[in-house]
């Protein structure tokens, strides 16, 4: 469904990502692992269209999308849950969800989906008309996921969703992700929490300093010394 070929991202003279190949087939969970500065966030920003690419191609359902603006990629079915969640704290919980559905022209259906999200997260329902700044970290993460859901996406990309959350909340978050995946949603999961990510993923890629150094199933990667190396440096 998503195919990335030879993707290169540069910031000035610094190469953040070099000639990366990666694919997310329909209904799968793919994880991208690596230490800080491995190029994981650059990958997601390039995929959603926040960062221009220096080379390579991004194909979505067979069509090249890397020249299209972010708004069109979102419309086509990509969604990003950004690092640090980036909730719009000056807006209400409800408005955050509505902004998530910004491009959609079926308000009745959107309203039903928002209700479904409230049923799933009663905490959000209680505060739907309060400013999102009053939410806890875990609630904010749920709101960020909910916001990506109402965009009607078929691929949800998550940038370090476990960052700054308690173990209990992390466990609940990953349960939710698996459940969403069972419902047919494909996931591209960028994580530093290797064990958590590999426990849910179908396959993984390991990045180091912008280059892919390993790729395989979770079992293969857990047995692979290069995974340790990616984090320990050297």
């Amino acid at each position: 469904m998503l195919e990335v070929e030879n993707l290169t991202v540069r910031y000035g003279r610094i190469t953040a990502l070099a000639e990366l190949d990666l694919a997310v087939p329909e209904g799968r969970i793919v994880t991208v692992l690596g230490a800080n500065g491995a190029g994981k966030s650059s990958l997601l920003k390039a995929l959603i269209g926040l960062t221009p690419i220096a080379g390579g191609a991004i194909r979505w359902k067979g069509e090249a999308i890397h020249r299209r603006p972010a708004s069109e990629r979102v419309k086509a079915g990509l969604a990003l849950v950004p690092e640090g969640r980036r909730i719009l704290v000056s807006m209400t919980v409800e408005d955050n969800l509505k902004v998530g559905a910004y491009h959609r022209d079926d308000p009745a259906q959107v309203a039903r989906e928002i209700d479904a999200i409230y049923q799933r997260f009663p905490n959000l329902a209680e505060r739907r008309f309060q400013k999102a700044s009053c939410l806890s970290g875990g609630e904010q993460q749920m709101l960020a996921v909910g916001r990506a859901l109402v965009s009607g996406s078929s691929l949800m990309m998550l940038d370090e969703p476990s960052l700054g959350l308690s173990p209990i909340i992390i466990a609940r978050l990953f349960e939710l992700l698996v459940e969403l995946n069972k419902g047919g949603l494909a996931l591209l999961l960028v994580e530093q929490n290797t064990n958590m990510a590999l426990s849910v993923a179908h396959e993984g890629h390991v990045l180091k300093l912008g280059r892919k150094i390993a790729h395989g199933t979770p079992q293969q990667l857990l047995a692979d010394a290069r995974l340790q190396e990616a984090y320990l440096g050297g």
């Binding site: 959603i48 972010a70 719009l88 408005d95 910004y102 916001r147």
Partner: peptide, 15 residues
Amino acid sequence: RAVAENADTATILGV
């Protein structure tokens, strides 16, 4: 309002 708070976030939400 989304742009007002954070233009990058607004972008990734499809604004």
